[in-house]
Amino acid sequence: KSSGQLMAEWGLDDVDYLFSEEDYHTLTNYKAFSQFLRPLIAKKNPKIPMSKMMTVLGAKWREFSANNP
């Protein structure tokens, strides 16, 4: 499932962030990516359980990696 599908299924607000060329150069591993995106997700979904946060971050990382030029 996509991150958007997961968040909709769980009734969470998705984070629409348009990644720049620079993001693809600086966010080169999962740790850097999650440190960048986790606060954005948490801000829109302050009560998100950690298990769902990790699942969403994993899905967003897969999508980000697939779109990386």
Rank of each mutant, 00 (worst) to 15 (best):
L6A: 04
G58D: 10
N68A: 12
S20K: 14
K31L: 10
K31E: 15
F33R: 00
F33C: 00
G4I: 14
D23G: 01
E9F: 02
Y30I: 08
F19A: 03
V15A: 08
M7V: 04
M50V: 03
A66V: 08
D23F: 00
D13V: 15
T28V: 09
H25V: 13
W10F: 15
N45E: 02
K1F: 03
D14A: 02
F33Y: 08
M7I: 06
M50A: 15
H25Q: 14
Y17G: 04
L6C: 02
M7E: 02
E9T: 12
L57P: 00
T26F: 09
K31H: 12
D13K: 15
L12S: 03
M54T: 01
D23Y: 00
D14R: 06
W10S: 08
Y17C: 06
D23T: 03
K31I: 09
A42H: 10
G11E: 08
D13I: 15
T28E: 07
D13N: 15
L6Q: 07
W10H: 11
Y17P: 09
Q5M: 11
G11T: 01
A8Q: 13
Q5D: 09
D13L: 15
D13Q: 15
H25Y: 14
F19H: 05
V15D: 06
H25M: 15
M7H: 01
S2H: 14
S20P: 02
K1Y: 08
N45Q: 03
G4H: 06
W10K: 11
S3K: 02
Q35N: 12
N45R: 00
K1R: 03
P69T: 03
V15Q: 02
Y17A: 04
L6F: 06
A42R: 07
F33V: 00
G4M: 14
T28N: 11
R62H: 12
A8H: 14
N45M: 02
H25W: 11
S20N: 07
Q35W: 04
M7P: 01
K47E: 14
W10P: 02
D14E: 05
I48M: 13
Y30A: 04
K31N: 11
M53H: 00
L27Y: 09
L12C: 09
L27D: 00
K60A: 14
S2V: 06
Y30G: 02
Y30M: 07
A32V: 10
D23Q: 08
A8R: 15
Q35M: 10
D16L: 03
S2W: 00
Y24W: 09
K31W: 08
W10R: 05
D13Y: 13
L6E: 04
G58C: 11
G4L: 14
Y30D: 05
A8V: 12
S51Y: 04
L12W: 08
S20C: 09
F36S: 11
S3Q: 06
A32S: 13
E22D: 13
G11S: 08
S34P: 14
L27H: 01
F19L: 05
Y17I: 10
L27R: 00
L27V: 05
N45L: 04
F64L: 01
P49E: 11
L12V: 08
N67G: 08
P49R: 04
N67F: 05
M50S: 04
Y17D: 03
D13T: 15
F19Q: 07
S2I: 06
I41Y: 02
G58N: 14
N45V: 01
A59L: 13
A32D: 15
L27M: 08
D23W: 00
E9K: 13
E21A: 11
L18A: 07
E21S: 11
L57V: 12
H25L: 14
K47R: 13
K47V: 05
T28R: 08
E22C: 06
E63L: 04
H25D: 13
L18V: 15
P46N: 04
T26H: 13
T28K: 10
W10T: 07
E21L: 08
G11D: 08
E22H: 14
L40H: 08
H25G: 11
T28D: 11
L6N: 04
Y24N: 09
D16Q: 06
N45D: 03
P46W: 03
W10Q: 07
D13E: 15
K60Y: 06
D23N: 08
E22R: 12
M7G: 01
Y17W: 05
A42Y: 04
G4C: 15
W61C: 01
S34A: 13
K60M: 12
F33T: 00
F19N: 01
K31R: 12
R38S: 13
D16Y: 05
Y24E: 04
L6S: 03
V15N: 02
E22M: 07
D16M: 03
Q35A: 11
Y30Q: 09
D16F: 03
N45C: 06
F64E: 01
S34M: 05
S51V: 01
V15I: 14
F33P: 00
K31Q: 12
L27G: 00
E21G: 09
G58A: 14
M7C: 07
L27K: 00
K47G: 15
K1W: 03
K43R: 07
E21K: 12
A42L: 15
E22S: 13
S51E: 06
S34G: 06
L12Y: 15
M7Q: 02
P39I: 01
L57Q: 01
D16N: 05
N68S: 10
E9I: 06
Y17L: 08
F19T: 04
D16I: 03
F19Y: 13
D16T: 06
M7K: 03
Y30K: 06
K31A: 11
S20Y: 05
A32I: 11
Q35D: 13
E9N: 09
L57W: 01
S2F: 04
E21Y: 06
D16E: 13
K1C: 12
N68V: 02
G4A: 15
G11W: 01
D23V: 00
K1M: 07
S51A: 07
Q5Y: 04
W10A: 08
F64I: 02
E9M: 14
L12A: 10
S20I: 10
F33L: 01
S3E: 03
V15P: 06
M7W: 02
E21P: 11
L18D: 15
Q5N: 09
T26Q: 12
L12H: 06
M53T: 06
L18M: 13
S3H: 02
Y24R: 09
F64T: 01
L6K: 06
S65Y: 10
G4T: 14
D23K: 01
F33D: 00
Y17K: 05
Y17M: 06
L57Y: 00
N45A: 02
E21H: 08
Y24M: 09
A32E: 13
M53V: 08
L6V: 07
W10L: 15
D16R: 02
L27S: 00
E22F: 06
G58Q: 08
L57T: 03
E22T: 11
Q5S: 11
P46G: 06
S20E: 09
D13W: 11
K47L: 02
M54F: 05
N45P: 00
G11L: 09
A66P: 04
E22W: 08
S2L: 07
S2C: 04
G11I: 00
L57G: 00
L12R: 01
F33N: 00
D16A: 05
A8I: 15
N45H: 07
S34R: 11
Q35V: 10
A59E: 07
I41G: 03
F19I: 05
Y30R: 05
L57S: 00
W10Y: 15
S20T: 15
H25R: 14
S3N: 08
V15M: 05
N45K: 01
G4F: 14
K47T: 11
S20M: 07
H25E: 13
Q5C: 08
L57K: 00
Y24H: 12
T28P: 07
D14P: 05
P46Q: 04
K44P: 02
F33E: 00
L6G: 03
T26S: 08
S3M: 05
L12D: 02
S51R: 12
S3C: 07
S3L: 10
A8L: 14
Y30H: 04
M7R: 01
S20V: 11
Q35C: 12
A42F: 14
D13M: 12
Q35K: 09
D23H: 11
K1E: 02
G58R: 15
A8N: 13
S2N: 11
D13H: 14
Y24L: 08
A32N: 10
K43T: 15
F19P: 11
A32M: 10
S20R: 13
I48L: 13
R62L: 10
Y17E: 06
L6H: 04
L40F: 12
I41T: 12
N45G: 00
L37S: 14
F19D: 03
F19C: 03
S51G: 13
T26N: 13
A66T: 05
T28L: 10
Q5W: 02
P46H: 02
E22Q: 13
S3Y: 08
E63R: 01
L18R: 14
L27I: 11
G4D: 13
Y30P: 07
K44S: 03
K31G: 08
Q5A: 12
W10C: 05
V15K: 01
L6I: 14
D23A: 02
